[in-house]
Design a binder for these strands. Structure first.
Length: 707
RNA sequence: AGCGGGAUGGGAUAGCCAGGAGAUUCCGGCGGGCUCAUAACCCGCAGACCGGUAGUUCAAAUCUACCUCCCGCUACCA
């Protein structure tokens, strides 16, 4: 370990994986970024001449699937399989071609997972411990992971049973979450003692530190786990009280019936299982999966940044403990935003995989966009406008145009590739691009892989323009042939170099050049090999995206988000800055010492600004506390036109039973918000920390405007 | 308030890990050229004291410390 790795290509077999798709819902552009990225990277490795397998599989276990299946009243296996099949059908449509795509519930993975756990057990890395497990007395069942919600013991945020997903992002061990509540019945859960299996991750701290020192990929995948190690590693509970999953192996062939392995135990093992399935299909002479996983192969994981911990702590520790090879690289991608805002499936602010396909855009366009916009670990914004700009500018204008003009010129004047050698200037330039590509792969930079190709095409445009062969065909036919010969070579080179990113388009070019076979099988050197002497009339490979098309797409998206109750207003929220200048004070009624009061704002607002506030008189119809919140109460408030549900932070400050019937003053055009899962549609006005409710003293009518 | 990511010409981005030439590329603006090509392509011009302050150094966009601001997820909503 920790010695410097040889550059790709090496003489060892490599495996590239993407994070396992969780068989629980539709795929969107955020998922696609990972699968396409890993696909492109594995293709690029092959172009370098590296022997590579690209494998993955659906992640079938875990509580979310169990919970969702239960809600739909179907078997978890059927539920997950249905998604699994849908995924398997979707990937090829994006030219994501796995050498093997399995799933975690299949025989191979079940066996291999048990075997690895058995080994860890034999090696003494697993021990038993009784822990407190949340239990729902009403439903008479234990509540692993997401069957339970509560409070994070570290940061106090609301957390799921397995992870502080909204707060500090920490992985939570069973029994850690405080104030547990059952997600099955909503009732408070109680903790009961149960015996579970633990993996001694803490024993691997030194190993992991060294492992991280030698780990390639993105920096976030190295730095984040270092902090966790410094803070002290906790042992990892491997088992759960539930039925859906892989039974814990006991002894030789026995399994323990009432506990299963935690989903994150068997999920990464699928990387190995899937590789194994691939090797068994093509023959282990063809691809030596044991060498990869048990000896010295190159393992590259491309994942989302939300699962760094699993891939840089638990997984390498498992591999090391069971005497397997550990990853060479973990590359963690950033997230995708849509029009500058966070992708949100619940708000339907997302570009869905099927939606993209229904719009009939070529998959390679999206591949190009997702891999070359921003660095791998950067968050990348998607908008149809940017998509159009990128496609029209770079793919149509630069690459497509160069391909077409070169081949067309060559076809018309020479019926193919002119018979002469490539000039030195051009072959050197192509070699430069080859070098850039090699470097980009070794930097795990997909963007640079794409850029090497695009920039070569740009050079091609420049070259043909500078030499003006259309002027030379009559005056200096030899020179003209030379220039076109060069251009055809550049075109071919661009195809070879762009194949990882845009495989299908590159293949079309390949065929236009009269090449046989697949461009996917071409290696870097082939960029310098002459294309066939003759080829047919070429066609345009990329089409422009028109403006009205983009308008249409933007509208569709906006409508959809609005329909899902989104917030496309935001307008001009003129946040008045709370100047802490002590603009002196108030002469108000009460006895408060002014130091304790919030200073008056200096900025004045106009009457128009005030008019934007729709303040109304309302009457509280009902009030009840919100479970789990100290202060929040859910109110139903009659405002004349309608009754609004409003969340207010007054639970402890008022006797909720006395509120119904009370008049109150509220801001009616407050942007809706969600608190503790409860929608709040307006804001009750109250004074100070004691939430002294504002009201009217005379006969104001419900719904009347305050001005 | 917590966690994460940022701040580079009008917009978007690279360079930062391994400090040193005129700070990259794309879009947009302005001017010119070409006509083989999808009103494409090529050339030129304008435009950035690389968020701020202090430090390390012969040398800082790049390293260190502090600060400010932005974005995402989250948010006990007055």
């Amino acid at each position: 370990m920790s010695t410097t790795n040889d550059d790709f290509p090496t003489d060892r077999p490599a495996v590239v994986t993407c994070g396992l798709p969780y068989a629980n819902g539709d795929l969107h552009i955020g998922h696609l970024r990972g699968y396409i990225g890993a696909d492109a990277f594995s293709r690029a490795l092959e172009t370098l001449g590296q022997e590579t397998a690209y494998v993955s599989g659906s992640d079938m276990h875990g509580t979310p699937i169990a919970v969702n299946a239960e809600q739909e009243g179907v078997d978890p296996e059927d539920f997950a399989l249905e998604w699994h099949e849908q995924y398997a059908e979707t990937f090829p449509k994006f030219n994501v071609e796995f050498d093997n795509y399995g799933h975690t519930h299949d025989e191979t993975n079940t066996e291999l997972t048990r075997e690895i756990v058995r080994t860890l057990d034999e090696e003494g890395y697993i021990y038993e411990k009784e822990i407190q497990v949340a239990y729902d007395p009403d439903a008479d069942q234990y509540l692993p992971d997401r069957y339970v919600e509560g409070t994070c013991p570290y940061c106090g945020a609301k957390a799921r049973g397995d992870e502080c997903d909204e707060g500090c992002q920490r992985h939570l061990e069973p029994g850690e979450v405080e104030d547990p509540k059952s997600t099955v019945t909503g009732n408070p859960a109680e903790y009961r003692g149960r015996t579970h299996k633990f993996f001694e991750v803490s024993e691997f701290a030194d190993f992991l530190t060294e492992f991280l020192d030698g780990l390639e990929g993105t920096s976030n995948a190295r730095n984040q786990p270092r902090q966790w190690i410094e803070e002290g590693l906790q042992d990892w509970c491997l088992t759960r009280d539930m039925e859906w999953g892989i039974d814990y192996p006991n002894g030789d062939n026995e399994t323990t019936e009432d506990i299963v392995l935690y989903v994150w135990v068997d999920a990464p093992v699928e990387y190995i299982s899937s590789t194994k399935q691939y090797a068994e299909r093509v023959g282990t002479d063809e691809y030596d999966w044991r060498r990869v996983w048990e000896d010295d192969g190159e393992i590259v994981h491309i994942i989302g940044r939300d699962i760094i911990q699993h891939h840089t702590i638990f997984w390498p520790a498992m591999l090391e403990g069971a005497d397997y090879n550990t990853p060479r690289a973990v590359a963690a991608t950033g997230f995708i935003t849509i029009n500058g805002k966070g992708l949100s499936t619940s708000r339907n602010r997302a570009i869905w995989a099927n939606e993209y396909l229904d719009e009939d855009f070529h998959p390679d366009l999206l591949r190009y966009y997702l891999t070359t916009t921003g660095g791998l670990q950067q968050d990348v914004d998607f908008s149809w406008d940017a998509f159009q700009e990128k496609v029209n500018g770079e793919l149509v204008g630069t690459v497509g145009n160069f391909w077409y003009r070169s081949l067309l010129f060559a076809y018309r004047n020479y019926e193919g590739t002119p018979e002469t050698d490539v000039s030195e200037e051009v072959s050197e330039r192509i070699e430069g691009a080859i070098g850039d590509t090699r470097e980009a792969v070794n930097d795990y930079s997909l963007r640079d892989i794409g850029q090497a190709a695009t920039q070569l095409a740009q050079f091609g445009n420049e070259y043909i323009q500078r030499n003006e062969p259309w002027k030379l065909t009559d005056d200096d036919p030899e020179r003209a042939a030379q220039v076109i010969r060069d251009c055809v070579q550049i075109a071919k080179a661009v195809g070879v170099l762009l194949e990882p990113i845009a495989p299908e388009k590159a293949q079309h070019l390949w065929e236009q050049l009269g090449e046989t076979g697949d461009v996917a099988d071409a290696h870097l050197e082939d960029a310098l090999e002459a294309p066939p002497r003759t080829f047919d009339e070429p066609g345009e490979l990329f089409a422009k995206i028109e403006d009205d098309r983009v308008d249409e797409l933007n509208e569709k998206l906006a409508e959809r988000v609005a329909a899902a109750g989104g917030d496309e207003d935001e307008g001009e929220g003129e946040e008045t800055e709370t100047e802490t200048d002590d603009t002196t004070t108030d002469e108000s009624t009460a006895m408060a010492d002014t130091d304790a009061l919030e200073p008056l704002l200096e900025d004045r607002i106009g009457f128009e600004d005030f008019q934007e506030l729709d303040i109304r008189v309302g009457r509280i119809e009902s009030a009840e506390g919100i479970d789990g919140a100290d202060d929040l109460a859910k109110l139903e408030v009659d405002i004349g036109f309608e009754t609004r549900q409003i969340v207010a932070g007054i639970k402890q400050l008022h006797d909720l039973g006395e509120l119904p019937g009370e008049k109150c003053i509220l801001l009616a055009n407050m942007e809706p918000a969600e608190l503790f899962g409860v929608e709040s549609n307006g804001m009750i006005l109250a004074a100070g920390d004691e939430a002294d409710l504002l009201t009217t003293h005379d006969a104001a009518v419900i719904g009347e405007k305050v001005q």
